[in-house]
Design a protein around this nucleic acid. Structure first.
Length: 606
DNA sequence: GCCGTTTTCGGCCCGACTGTTTTCAGTCG
C-alpha cells in the first residue's frame, strides 16, 4: 500500500471519528498524520521494515499499529468498524461549507438523514430549521453547498487522480500479458478536475488484466467488463476505464484516449479537408473510424481550415517538448507535435499550422520557488530543512514567505519574529553556497484593504506576496477594492492565489479575474499560479489571458513541508495549459534578473 | 492520539464571523 493510500485511510478515520463526536484533538491527530504520510519522502513500507513508523511526525504507538495493519493486510479493522458505525453519506455532508460535524450529527440524529439526497429534500421542505440551533440560513447554505458538490460530482482534483492513475499504471505493468501501459485522458492533459481516469494497455492474448485489476483493493465496484475494456469505480468514487488493445494499436489508442474530443475532431476535420482519412495518418482504432464516419456524414464547414492551410509554413518539431510516437500522426498532417496539455481545441491546431506553437515551460526550467512556509508560522519544517529540500530539487533560490500577524491560526509573525527570522536567514545564506534564501512574507490583505504591516516593515522584505485569507464573503466591489489596493501597493511584488478557490471545495471569492489581470499589467505586479493541488489558482484559462496581457507569472507551491515542493509539477502543468513559455515565468529567471525586476517594479509603483 | 528542558499529564492554533439567538455555539481559516 502506498503512502498516499494510507493517508486517505487515515483522513477517512479522522472524518468518521469527528462525525462520531470524538474530541477534536484526537480527530486532528489523524488528519495531521494523514498529511504527514501524504508528504513523506520515504515509503511507509520501508519504515515498517526497520520498525521506524513512529519516526513519522505525529505518529505514535497507536497510529503506527493502524498503519502497520494497513501495510501488512491492505485493510484496517478499525476503519471498517467505523464505516459500519457512521453512515457514509454523512462524510459527504461534511464537505458542505457551513456544515460541521456537530450540525451533521444533529441532522442525522434529529431527522434520520443519511444521504445528500435526503438532506436536500429536508432543506427544501424547511425541516432543517426545526432542529435546535439550525435555521433558514443554514438551509440555504445546504442547498447551495449541495449544488456546488453536484457540479464536481464524480470529479476529483488532479492532485488525487494523477497519483491514483500512476498506481494503476504500475499495477498494470506487473500483470502477465501486458506489454505497455499508459495514462491517457484528462489526467494526461493535466486538467484540474478529473471525471474518469483513462488508461491504455497493450496486451497479448491470454492476458489477465480484468481478473487482476478487478481484485485490486482500490476497486469498489466493476462497472463494465468487456474483451477490450474494463471499467470500475474506486473506493474514492473515481471512475477508471482501462482500454486493452493489441500492441500494434497501442499508440493510436493512447492518442485517441488522451483526447480531448474537440481536439481529436478538429484534427479529423483537417485531415478530411485534405482528402485524408484517419487510417491514412495511422489512426487505426475502431473508435476513430467510427468517429470519422460520423464526421463525414455530418455537414461540416471546412472553409476555415482551407484558409489556414494556405498559410501553412514549413513546420519543424517544437524544441524542448519530448515527442513520443504519437508525433507521427501530426507529422503526416504536416503539423508539428502538439503536447497533450494543449489538446483542447483552443487554437492549438491553428497555431501549429502557422508554426506558432509556444515553446512551453517545463519543470526543468524552474530555478526557484517563491512561496513557502516554515515553522515560524504554520509550516512544519525549519528554514534550513526547506532550503535543503529545495537544493535537492536543483533550485538556485527560494523565498520563505510565512504568514503575517493577523492570521493567528497560522501563527502569523509578530514584528519581533520577523526580525529573528531575518537574522536566521542571513546566517543560513552565509553557510549555504549554492542556494539563496530570500526573506519574504505572505502578508494578509485585510478586510478593509490595508496590508497587515506598515510600509516601513514591508519595504525590508526581499519579496512580498499579498493574499486574501479573510472576508471571503464580501461583495465583488469590496473584494476588488482590496485587490486593487494590494496590486497598486508599492511593496507588493506578487498577488498570491488570486481567486481564493479550493478545488471541489470552495468557490472563488467574488472576483473579476480580467480586471485583476489588467491591473497586474498596469502595475507590473506578478500574478501567482499557486501550484498546491488544492488550489491551482490562477487556472489555465486565466493564465493564458495573463500571458496575452503581458503579465508575468510566478509558479509557487505554497509548501508547508518539504514534500509539498513537489507540487511544482502541477503548477507547471497548469502553466503549460495556459500556453506559458519560460520567459513568462519569473522563477525560471536567474536570481539577479528576478531581483532587478522586483526592484524596478517597486520604484515604478512609488 | 501525540508529545515532552513547561515532560508521563495536560496541553494541543485561536480569534472573527455568522447565524441563531437574546448571550452564545458552531464554523472557518
Amino acid at each position: 500500500m502506498t503512502n498516499l493510500e494510507i493517508a486517505w485511510a487515515l483522513a477517512e478515520m479522522g472524518d468518521l471519528l469527528e462525525l462520531k463526536g470524538e474530541e477534536p484533538f484526537k480527530v486532528r491527530a489523524y488528519h495531521r498524520a494523514a498529511r504527514a504520510l501524504e508528504n513523506l519522502e520515504e515509503e511507509a513500507a520501508s519504515l515498517l521494515a526497520r520498525d521506524a513508523l513512529e519516526e513519522i511526525p505525529g505518529v505514535g504507538k497507536n497510529l503506527a499499529k493502524k498503519i502497520a495493519e494497513l501495510l501488512t493486510t491492505g485493510r484496517s479493522t478499525f476503519l471498517e468498524n467505523l464505516r459500519r458505525e457512521v453512515p457514509p453519506g454523512l462524510r459527504e455532508m461534511l464537505a458542505i461549507p457551513g456544515l460541521g460535524s456537530r450540525s451533521v450529527r444533529q441532522i442525522y440524529q434529529g431527522l434520520g438523514i443519511t444521504t445528500l439526497e435526503e438532506l436536500e429534500k429536508a432543506a427544501r421542505e424547511k425541516r432543517i430549521r426545526t432542529l435546535p440551533g439550525l435555521g433558514s440560513k443554514t438551509e440555504l447554505a445546504i442547498l447551495k453547498g449541495i449544488e456546488m458538490l453536484r457540479e464536481t460530482k464524480e470529479q476529483v482534483p488532479l492532485g488525487i487522480a494523477r497519483p491514483l492513475a500512476l498506481i494503476f499504471q504500475s499495477q498494470l505493468l506487473n500483470i502477465p500479458g501486458v506489454e505497455q501501459a499508459a495514462v491517457a485522458g484528462s489526467v494526461r492533459r493535466g486538467c484540474e478536475m478529473v471525471g474518469d481516469i483513462d488508461l491504455v494497455t497493450a496486451v497479448r492474448p491470454g492476458h489477465q488484466v480484468a481478473e487482476v485489476m478487478s481484485r485490486c483493493p482500490q476497486v469498489k465496484e466493476v462497472l463494465a467488463r468487456e474483451p477490450d475494456r474494463l471499467s470500475f469505480r474506486t473506493v474514492l468514487g473515481v471512475k477508471v476505464e482501462i482500454i486493452m488493445v493489441p500492441p500494434e494499436e497501442f499508440t493510436a489508442a493512447v492518442f485517441y484516449a488522451t483526447g480531448s474530443k474537440a481536439h481529436r475532431q478538429a484534427l479529423l476535420r483537417l485531415a478530411l479537408s485534405r482528402g485524408l482519412r484517419a487510417a491514412d495518418i495511422g489512426l487505426v482504432t475502431s473508435r476513430w473510424l467510427a468517429e470519422e464516419e460520423a464526421l463525414c456524414k455530418a455537414t461540416i464547414s471546412t472553409e476555415d481550415n482551407e484558409k489556414e492551410i494556405g498559410q501553412n509554413k514549413g513546420i519543424e518539431a517544437v524544441a524542448g517538448d519530448k515527442e513520443g510516437e504519437e508525433a507521427v500522426f501530426y507529422h503526416r498532417l504536416g503539423l508539428p507535435y502538439i503536447v497533450p496539455e494543449l489538446r483542447e481545441d483552443r487554437g492549438e491546431i491553428e497555431a501549429a499550422l502557422k508554426g506558432d506553437l509556444p515553446r512551453l515551460i517545463t519543470l526543468e526550467d524552474i530555478r526557484g520557488d517563491l512561496h513557502m512556509h516554515s515553522r515560524y508560522s504554520d509550516g512544519v519544517e525549519t528554514i534550513a530543512a526547506m532550503a535543503a529540500a529545495a537544493r535537492r530539487r536543483g533550485y538556485r533560490y527560494i523565498a520563505v514567505t510565512d504568514h503575517s500577524r493577523s492570521l493567528v491560526v497560522a501563527r502569523g509573525l509578530s514584528v519581533e519574529q520577523i526580525k529573528a527570522q531575518r537574522e536566521e536567514i542571513a546566517r543560513l545564506n552565509e553557510e549555504l553556497e549554492d542556494i539563496t534564501i530570500l526573506a519574504g512574507i505572505e502578508v494578509d490583505i485585510l478586510a478593509d484593504g490595508t496590508l497587515d504591516y506598515e510600509d516601513e516593515i514591508l519595504k525590508e522584505f526581499d519579496l512580498v506576496i499579498a493574499s486574501i485569507h479573510s472576508g471571503f464573503r464580501q461583495e465583488e466591489g469590496q473584494i476588488m477594492a482590496r485587490l486593487e489596493a494590494a496590486l497598486r501597493h508599492p511593496y507588493v511584488d506578487i498577488l498570491g492565489h488570486p481567486t481564493g478557490r479550493m478545488l471541489g471545495r470552495r468557490r472563488p471569492y467574488a472576483v473579476d479575474v480580467t480586471r485583476i489581470i489588467e491591473l497586474a499589467a498596469e502595475t507590473g505586479t506578478i500574478l501567482e499560479i499557486n501550484a498546491s493541488t488544492d488550489r491551482l489558482d490562477l487556472n489555465d484559462t486565466a493564465v493564458r489571458m495573463a500571458k496575452e496581457y503581458g503579465v508575468s507569472i510566478a509558479i509557487n507551491t505554497d509548501a508547508h513541508d518539504p514534500g509539498h515542493l513537489a507540487d511544482m509539477e502541477y503548477g507547471v502543468l497548469t502553466a503549460r495549459r495556459g500556453w506559458l513559455e519560460p520567459e513568462n515565468v519569473v522563477n525560471t529567471w536567474e536570481l539577479e534578473r528576478l531581483l532587478a525586476r522586483l526592484k524596478r517594479n517597486r520604484q515604478m509603483k512609488r
